[in-house]
Design a protein around this nucleic acid. Structure first.
Lengths: 135, 135
DNA sequence: TTAAAACCATATAGTCACTATAAGGTCAAT
DNA sequence: ATTGACCTTATAGTGACTATATGGTTTTAA
């Protein structure tokens, strides 16, 4: 299978596949006589795994770690669970931060309705005062 | 005021201030005889405004836009409100996406408890199957 | 047969908002 | 005289790609 076919079948673009190879996430495939990359079903599965991890918003470093577990399957799986638990708390704290942000933005927005001049705009005035320091 | 004092007073680091200058967010200050940047109160206010916008997670491009409104205060402020409304919907869709992601991760995590070998791990198996395509 | 299109290759630069490093000049205090 | 804190510029690194440039190969159509 050439790179274009693999890309279409998994739904990524070809540069991304080369990028994953360069990053050590996808093993370098054999080459055809003309130098084209020749992929096998194994590559396709590995790439699909990477894509599903990315959908779960795992970083490439986390994916590399999961791959090390896959490649040595007789370890205890506690580390995998820990990785996922950490990722879940990461996602949760992102959600919390964004919800606080949303509240702030909505209250700022409530300070102005259209039809004024910028000079009298409650939104710009609202940003202009208040604390500039992060927590 | 020199760059270090400004940085301390607003709570950013000096490179960030130079970066904002280079990006056109902070006007280039006059220089002392030795070439050191000499900031005024205006700069301090402008920098504080930028910081508050960044806390609200506005992009540098959005901040540049807001500054254009500040610098020409006799326009209608509808554009400011629109910018903020767009930003609020952006934040909301981030929240929604992360909540869906959290659900997915939690259900994946439920598929395994510790004490197994990686080979039998429900988490890795769970990532290994399912769709790899983004919507 | 030839020419266009679709494909493949590598290398390099750009995105965003910084942060870090290198290499050096200036100033106050010891 | 030298240490340390400050300032300067320029350049590279972060993460996960995406885009561009330049050129070779293969397939398809006129």
């Amino acid at each position: 299978m050439r790179i274009g076919q693999l890309a279409r079948s998994v739904g990524v673009n070809t540069q991304t596949i080369r990028f994953y190879e360069q990053q050590g996430l996808l093993p370098p495939p054999d080459r055809q006589e003309n130098g084209y990359r020749a992929y096998t079903e194994k590559h396709s599965e590995r790439l699909a795994f990477i894509c599903r991890c990315r959908i779960l918003d795992l970083s490439l470093a986390e994916i590399r770690e999961l791959q090390r577990y896959q490649d040595d399957p007789h370890q205890p799986c506690a580390a995998v669970n820990t990785l996922l638990d950490d990722h879940i708390s990461h996602v949760r704290s992102q959600i919390t931060a964004l919800q606080a942000l949303e509240k702030q933005l909505v209250s700022l927005r409530a300070g102005c309705s259209d039809g004024r001049e910028v000079e009298a705009c409650g939104v710009l005035a609202g940003i202009g005062k208040g604390s500039a320091h992060k927590q």
